[in-house]
Design a protein around this nucleic acid. Sequence first.
DNA 1: CGCAGCGCTGTTTTT
DNA 2: CAGCGCTGCG
Length: 772
Amino acid sequence: MSIAPATETRLLQGLNPEQLAAVTLGPEPALILAGAGSGKTRVLTTRIAWLLQTGQVSPGGVMAVTFTNKAAREMLTRLSAMLPVAVRGMWIGTFHGLCNRFLRAHWKLAGLPQGFQILDSSDQLSAVKRVIKAMGLDEERFVPKQVTWFIAGSKEEGLRPRDVEVRDEHGRTLVRVYEAYEAQCEREGVVDFAELMLRSYELMRDNDALREHYQRRFRHLLVDEFQDTNRLQYAWLKMFAPPGREQAVFAVGDDDQSIYAFRGARVGNMADFEREYRVERVVKLEQNYRSFGNILDSANALIAHNRQRLGKNLRTDAGAGEPVRVHEATSDYAEAQWLLDEAQQLHRAGTALAEIAVLYRSNAQSRVIESALFNAGIPYRVYGGLRFFERAEVKHALAYLRLIENANDDTSFLRVVNFPTRGIGARTIEQLQDAARASGRSLAQSVGAVAGRGGVALAGFVALIDGLRERTQGQTLREIIRQMLEDSGLITFYRTDREGQDRIENLEELVNAAEAFVTQEGFGKDAVALPVDEQAPDAAAGVVPDADTGEIMSPLAAFLTHASLEAGDNQAQAGSDAVQLMTVHSAKGLEFDAVFITGVEEGLFPHENALSDADGLEEERRLMYVAITRARQRLYLSFSQTRLLHGQTRYNVKSRFFDELPEGALKWLTPRQQGFGSGYARSYQEAWARGSGLSGIVGAGRVEPAPVPAAMASSRSSHGLKVGQSVFHTKFGEGVLLTLEGEGDDARAQVNFGRHGLKWLALSVAKLTPIE
DNA sequence: CGCAGCGCTGTTTTT
DNA sequence: CAGCGCTGCG
């Protein structure tokens, strides 16, 4: 190794022994179990820098894969801060970004048109809808969303239509839809996200020369968030670096933070990787640099309840710190009010608002909190809303741009053929689609087949697009977009629209985004570097065109690719000092001085839909683990007795996760519930006071009656139970009565028994005793 | 063709 | 409750 030792020393300075071991591992397969806050990104980037600096690999021999653009950017930024390296030759990016790069280079071999465009999820949904319609299927039985899910799921398992196992008629039809969808994408020259992965995988698998070329090229592959990879992504990786070869795969992940099983992530890939690659060194990064002891103790104790683990325990040198504060509220509204007060106090004591995060399990919970913050005039930012390139007006504009690039993009055609309205109605489009279907051509190619007034209007639309294409020939991206905004009538339309001002601003912003895209440093690197794909590689000569040399694709096509691959930030005022509101999922990877985890209730967190199987519960627990480990100094957990959900008051019990946290690390801000139900008496009274619920309460059997307000005594029902009431069951223990149905012997009650779940009980059979 | 009103349905999400 | 998609009317 011909390096200046001084530089190497500087690079490795400050790493702890585990990190150092990971960073300086030899060229062998390695699995790094990186706990939350253990300096994972630092290890990843330092390793790349170290490999480069010590001359073990050249930039062109490095591939580093992440899941999100943000993570990829972060890696690039940190890397270039460490080393004055040309990041140019390195393949650092998201799985999909790298696949795009690969397919742009080898489009011909992959059987794609040169300027193929990428469908985002909403484009894909409308494409599937069209297929379902065209096949004359019932959308009730073949729900477009589910069909889309089926297609993406199949692709992510590596299955083409012919590979999918069919059990019944319904399955057979699904496969036919999948087939037709593929044919349609092919015809229109578009690919969806999963297709990017699958196509790349198949090309590597089937083309020996190409595969050998890339295997020779990439010496070091680094994978971030390995626990989130799906089957196809792992298979893809194995194509670039098969087990038992000399390439070094450096997989970094944390099985305890696997929270995406529901979308196909396979934690099992970690164990498979260890086995298949015969990993000798599993390095655990357990030193945590983020949180204080009580927070980590809570996280460790909680996650210890999961059975399926590789095993890992976080530790810190930071001391115990503050206790984890627990708050019980009477209602979601009260919870929000309390949280607001606490946040204000923190802020007054010097915590920046942006360092305060409010986490929740599902988006529906944000509303109450938002309104509390809004009314108090505290700035906040909600993550996960509509993102820039997903906004309707922006998508309209992009559709025009896509048509300029590719007239056969039917998805885009349908999106804007009558927007702004130009007298092209449903029946005209119907005729056009029939004609297109009959001739197997695109909509744009079929306009001639429609007669009458509709035909004229259609011809006018096609002429508009053609005109735009001709007029913008050779213009800059900025000019193209400006011209399109004018000619399409979008600007004019929104100018007369009541709420059009914001939309016009967004369209202006699109021009800026394009400008930024063109001038940004990375231009020409990712989407734009469009290599020459010289026919099929000459296997005999061993010459394969590589993805890093070649011609430039048009700025417009590059920009459209960028827009699909990176949906942009969500609109909220980034940068300003504001409380951060988000789901636990979107909090992954982030950290804050103070964190509120709200709605820690049975049915919500863990979510009721995840309770049907043990795996579901374990994923919920990992989710809670992720939430807890976001906090640096202060952590709050709160739950509420009642919550307005779907317009109905729900009566909740505190989450079972509280029983899994170390009592010594917690501080209850509200009186701890003693024995059965003391916490519920209040909710019941409140429910009564509000006039919801209401049939009254009678002590049944041996249990003493609750103190019943006089007004209620008159409305007793025969079973003596009411909604919101705490009850005791000999088998399931304490619970809260959610619903009452039927009369007399038919009366049934739905009860939330916390860890035993939601139960329907026949009152004539079940012994339910009210608890005070 | 466009709009108003009705009814249904509610986890988590990146690319 | 609230957002969406579909229907039916003008």
